[in-house]
Amino acid sequence: MSAREDILGRIRAATAGVTAPAVPRDYRIFGDHASGDPRLLDLLTDRLDDYKATVHRVTAAELPGKLAEITLGWSVVVPPGSPLPLPGAAVDDDLAYADLDRIDAVLTGCAAACAETGTIALDGGPGQGRRALTLIPDRHVCVVLADQVVQTVPELLHRLDPARPLTFVSGPSATSDIELNRVEGVHGPRTLIVVLVTA
């Protein structure tokens, strides 16, 4: 018998007659506020501050000026077809890792964000690019639209498609491995700048 049949046979023998309990789903699914509510934007900002990310809040009209100001003096890469306004940015047409490593910053959008945990989800959709793009450059400038912000983790997951490769980002990379004290900035981008766009 193959290892597969062995293991499955053992599992079936071990669980014969065991019935699955019903799963109570009385935990919170939806938050108190609809997506984009100003209170959620405040909460998201508070959480990201706590993670030592930088947050800017702008209107759509102010966005181009703010992006230019943030990235002043940096080389910037954007995913192909990026709708974000930043003249002069390089486009990731399958750049080699070593090339990405020489670029100062990456500018992307996101798929959704969760206020309670300060989490931004990337799904490789339009304006986000492949995973290596938001990983190798040392600075990640991420534009979050107000109506992408939900309150709870269940609301966040409901907005995402598991068939896509997903990355959940809650602050810049960090470690707590030395005496359990948090140090921000290890292998992933050491700087996370979030630009929150309100209506």
């Binding site: 959480r47 399958d94 969760c114 995973r131 490769p165 997903l166 980002v169 809650s170 602050g171 810049p172």
Partner: peptide, 25 residues
């Protein structure tokens, strides 16, 4: 998990993947 382990509201990074994605990873 994150609140129980590192005492954070969410850990900095969570990755999920499903099989292979052409051109990514």
């Amino acid at each position: 998990l994150p609140r129980s382990s590192t005492g954070e509201r969410m850990n900095p990074y969570t990755s999920t993947w499903t099989g292979i994605t052409p051109g990514d990873g």
